[in-house]
Design a protein around this nucleic acid. Sequence first.
DNA 1: TTGACGTATTCCGTTATGGGAATATGTTTG
DNA 2: CAAACATATTCCCATAACGGAATACGTCAA
Lengths: 111, 111
Amino acid sequence: MPRAPTTADPFNAIAEPRRRDILTLLADEEWPVTDIAERLRIGQPSVSKHLRVLLDVGLVDVRREGRQAYYRTNATQIKAIHDWTRRFERYWTHQLLRIKARAEGRTSTTP
Amino acid sequence: MPRAPTTADPFNAIAEPRRRDILTLLADEEWPVTDIAERLRIGQPSVSKHLRVLLDVGLVDVRREGRQAYYRTNATQIKAIHDWTRRFERYWTHQLLRIKARAEGRTSTTP
DNA sequence: TTGACGTATTCCGTTATGGGAATATGTTTG
DNA sequence: CAAACATATTCCCATAACGGAATACGTCAA
């Protein structure tokens, strides 16, 4: 069984750094494809392909106007990832506390 | 250029659902490989391979004791993902407000 | 209509996946 | 030492990624 397609879910979609860049860029305002390509220094076909993936997963929305396509981040899908990671929030907090405690020469159980 | 290896970074590593399951299981306490396989109904070699990926990325720690290897989630790497998603927090909040407003028959600009 | 423009898709080629089965490595026990 | 046990690795294979180049579409302008 090969790796799941990038369009399988938001987790797979955001694994690609450039797609994360695109999502960040499109968070505040919509942009047409060419502008995205210019700003991020990516070839237009690549941008189109990345946007295709993001669109399939629902991470972006499109607004077609004439021959241009304005894309914009739809953050609701990112929430799913955020919610998953949030369950570990207390662990890295504890880890930090432990590290801090060790650095100060005392154990985490005796604060 | 193919897709980045799963060991490239935590984003790629957690794209696989079973690896997320493993991380969730190992969050509270350490477990040996066989126990993980039993609890999650995955073959032992598969578990070992997933753990290998997670270990390379630093998402788990190991404690070897005799012939057993106790793995445990190291959540500090998950924080990187959490931090990235957190930057979009306000967007889905706004989106929800917009949806709610629309459902109540008023625009988001006139709350 | 023809041509220019903006976007999307297709065709490469290289690389990696994840599962199962078999096997290798290392450790404990009798 | 040999057998049992725990874990790791290798082999096999179908699937798919990503980038770049070329090309196909759809739309707008002259």
